[in-house]
């Protein structure tokens, strides 16, 4: 099997387990891993004038924080395990962005952690896992 494994990573415990699972698969298949962190963002949300003026600064801060606090540790962990790893840091709708990354990069499967929202919360806000399962162009593994 060729292609990379895409892991949707948000730093949570279940995301860690998803990384571990993906690492096992990668080793077995000799595949690379693409770690993606998506910052939830809608271009149709509403901001105050002050937030507009500060947006670029905040965005840079958010990106820097995600890079150092979230991505760097997991990359170091995978590299030390001898797995080739790349990262993507994006803004957007989480499930849609993961699907887009899957087609842009040559991805063979997507692995994500289960968020464990209550049934009500998922019903109200939709869940990433649910949307991905419906929309992904390739197999999706949801790690509990």
């Amino acid at each position: 099997m060729t292609g990379k494994i895409l892991v949707g990573y948000d730093g949570s415990d279940s995301a860690q387990r998803a990384v571990d699972y993906a690492a096992g698969r990668a080793k077995a298949e000799g595949a690379d891993i693409l770690i993606a962190h998506v910052l939830e963002w809608s271009p149709y949300s509403f901001l105050t004038p002050e937030e507009l003026a500060e947006r670029h600064k905040r965005r840079n801060e958010e990106l820097a924080r995600a890079e150092t606090a979230l991505l760097a540790p997991v990359v170091a962990r995978l590299k030390s395990a001898g797995i080739a790893v790349e990262t993507e840091l994006k803004y957007g709708h989480i499930a849609e962005t993961l699907c887009r990354l899957a087609t842009e990069h040559d991805i063979s499967q997507i692995v994500i952690g289960r968020t464990g929202h209550s049934a009500l919360a998922s019903r109200l806000f939709g869940s990433v896992a649910g949307t991905l399962a419906q929309a992904a162009p390739i197999p999706v593994t949801i790690v509990p």
Binding site: F46, L47, R55
Partner: peptide
């Protein structure tokens, strides 16, 4: 609508947001 917005610029102020903020004023 965002037809001309580069997806890589996501997270920056969009045209829609600037319009909505100016309108609410």
């Amino acid at each position: 609508k965002g037809d001309y917005s580069d997806p890589n610029d996501a997270g920056e102020v969009s045209h829609f947001q600037a319009l909505a903020t100016a309108l609410s004023g």
